[in-house]
């Protein structure tokens, strides 16, 4: 992305310090490489989530190691585990408290579809309450699968129209 400065505007003091890009690309690039997860660990998937955060798999290679236990500081909620009906509104409340922009990863069979729990007590997929960006299969998924899901989410964020779609109110206010 570093552009060669035109000879006419050559200035050795700022050489190499200017990048030409689209605002969207810059915003998305910054966002996708420091996703702060909200670890919504509800069952055994949370153990794999912890393994993903630990040294062997090391989620910090992808900039998502800052697990925040406060929804107000989080960007992506990783729903890891079985969402019971008793817990369902609590998950939704935490999602509602997260600041925009926010994303959701449904980790594992239970969070995606209720999994093996076709039962009176289990919500049949967290997408019945909150919008989900990435579904990860597995019971539980291996850490590699979670990292793959995270990379898919990063690719999705790259393509977002972050300025026009997400800053609509701001743009209307200044125009």
């Amino acid at each position: 992305m570093i552009q060669q400065a035109a000879p006419l505007a050559y200035d050795s003091k700022i050489e190499g310090n200017i990048i030409f890009t689209k605002l969207d690309s810059a915003i998305n690039w910054m966002r996708k490489n420091s996703l702060w997860p909200m670890p919504m660990g509800l069952a055994c998937c949370a153990i794999e989530l912890m393994a993903t955060g630990a040294s062997r798999f090391d989620i910090s290679r992808f900039g998502a190691e800052v697990m925040r236990f406060s929804p107000r500081q989080s960007d992506v909620m990783i729903v890891a585990g079985t969402v019971t009906y008793k817990m369902a509104y609590a998950v939704k409340r935490i999602y509602d408290q997260m600041a925009e922009p926010k994303w959701v990863i449904a980790m594992g069979a239970c969070a995606s579809s209720g999994g093996m729990y076709r039962s009176y007590a289990v919500l049949q997929g967290i997408d019945r309450l909150i919008p989900v960006d990435v579904y990860i299969s597995g019971c539980p998924p291996r850490p590699e699968a979670l990292l793959e899901g995270l990379l898919r989410l990063q690719r999705k964020i790259e393509g977002e129209s972050s300025l026009f779609d997400q800053k609509k109110q701001l743009l209307e206010a200044v125009s």
Partner: peptide, 16 residues
């Protein structure tokens, strides 16, 4: 598969 129920702001259920 369960039965439908709804307690507003507490929890709901639906048949699986």
């Amino acid at each position: 598969e369960g039965k439908s129920s709804d307690v507003p702001d507490v929890a709901f259920t639906a048949p699986a």
